[in-house]
Design a protein around this nucleic acid. Structure first.
Lengths: 113, 113
DNA sequence: CATATCAATCGGCAATCGACGATACAAGCG
DNA sequence: CGCTTGTATCGTCGATTGCCGATTGATATG
């Protein structure tokens, strides 16, 4: 399972790592790109440009950000580049969400000091 | 379970909603605040200021963003305000992450056209 | 009523972001 | 060799973000 929790799961939240992944997801265009990559096995940037209706340079920039975050990998497959998703970097964000959801709702013993 | 997937879970990704939540999580200071709120049941802003080492106005601004995203609710409990987490808005982001992780790694049939 | 406490807001500043067009680059193909 | 195709990079612009100190507002307490 490749668990990165040496102390048992009650670890302090790794703010930097979570923020980095969340930042990559913090733009509708990038989420759309990911959704598009989910619907295909992976693929052409030109199709993404056509799909989300932004300029080619803008899409390339979003893809660069997604690649920098590790969410997307671009396999060079001349003359195209095959884009696909890499779920592994999602682990910290997933862990934070799980912690919050396990923590309970706003009314669960939310008594102030 | 309050499932918001009327079509069965294979729905198109809601870019706006996901991006809005991710944006709130896209800053280390805000992730730290959430981590702090996880360690307590909820509470005082002054403690948060002391914990993460930013100015009070800055922390208040981050709390405003978290509240605007719906991640944090502030119960007015004079003279303090009781901050606590609301997991419900995490659903879209959680769903996207689940979809990506279910989609498989970068090598899973990632054959271009 | 005066004071202390806690949170929110304001004004300003530097830095980053998001978008675009134009251009450069690399590889197949006639 | 020139052309087309697909992608990356550059320069620029306006908008937004993040941070701060200072101030204001609301409420308990002396």
């Amino acid at each position: 399972m490749l668990d990165e929790s040496p102390n048992g799961g009650r670890e302090a939240v790794d703010g930097e790592a979570v923020a980095a992944v969340a930042k990559a997801l913090a733009h509708p265009a990038r989420v759309k790109i990911i959704g598009f990559l989910l619907s295909r096995a992976g693929c052409i940037g030109g199709d993404i440009v056509d799909e989300i209706g932004l300029a080619q340079s803008t899409v390339s920039e979003h893809l660069r950000i997604l690649k920098a975050a590790g969410l997307v990998v671009g396999t060079i497959e001349r003359p195209r580049i095959c884009y696909s998703l890499d779920p592994s970097v999602l682990a910290p964000l997933r862990a934070l969400i799980a912690s919050i959801e396990a923590h309970g709702g706003p009314q669960t013993g939310a008594v102030c000091a």
